[in-house]
């Protein structure tokens, strides 16, 4: 990565502190969707943003929010570009981001150990305590949970149910 100037580092931090429009407990930096900030002049800046899912409608709200924050900081020209490559992965969510998701009642994604565009191997629908990497209930911590639907309130989440406390919950599914 090209060394950022002090101004770029400052703007990156500002843009990164913008909350995600659908999961406001996470910042864009914690979600891992903010790729770079290039200042081409004292008040002209380009921001590279990557979508979580190709069709994620939140990207437009994110762009607007970034523009607003950077303009309020004295930038006159703010251009937010959508970049696809390299493809975003749930591994780009920071450790702090995972912790916040859990606290918010959403089971964080498990880490993927492969890279690149190889299709996911999708596991069993039920996880158990003896599994090495179960999806844990964000409410009671039990590993005994089952999948209800691979698709939930947004494209990035799956719907699961805890078989210990019986509460349904969202799981930020691995991508």
């Amino acid at each position: 990565m090209v060394t950022a100037t002090a101004l770029e580092a400052e703007l990156l931090e500002l843009a990164g502190s913008v909350p995600d429009p659908e999961l406001p407990v996470l910042t864009l930096q914690e979600l891992g969707v903010l790729r770079a900030v290039h200042a081409s002049g004292p008040d002209t800046v380009e921001v590279d943003l990557t979508p979580t899912y190709t069709g994620c409608p939140a990207i437009e709200a994110m762009s607007t929010d970034i523009e607003r924050v950077l303009r309020a900081h004295g930038m006159r020209e703010v251009t937010v570009r959508t970049v696809l490559s390299p493809a975003w992965s749930t591994d780009d969510i920071t450790a702090e981001g995972r912790r916040k998701l859990q606290e918010f009642g959403i089971a964080p994604p498990r880490e993927r150990h492969d890279t690149g565009p190889i299709p996911l191997t999708l596991g069993a629908t039920r996880t158990l305590a003896e599994d090495t990497d179960p999806v844990r209930c964000p409410h009671c911590g039990s590993a005994d949970t089952e999948l209800l639907s691979r698709f939930s309130s947004t494209a990035c989440k799956a719907l699961r149910r805890c078989l210990s406390c019986r509460e349904p919950f969202d799981h930020f599914k691995e991508l």
Binding site: P51, L84, A87, P119, L122, F151, L175
Partner: peptide, 18 residues
Amino acid sequence: FAPLAAKAVKEVAYHRDH
């Protein structure tokens, strides 16, 4: 088409599994 395909193929894995 490589950048779009690399992104979309991960989404499609869920479609196919469904």
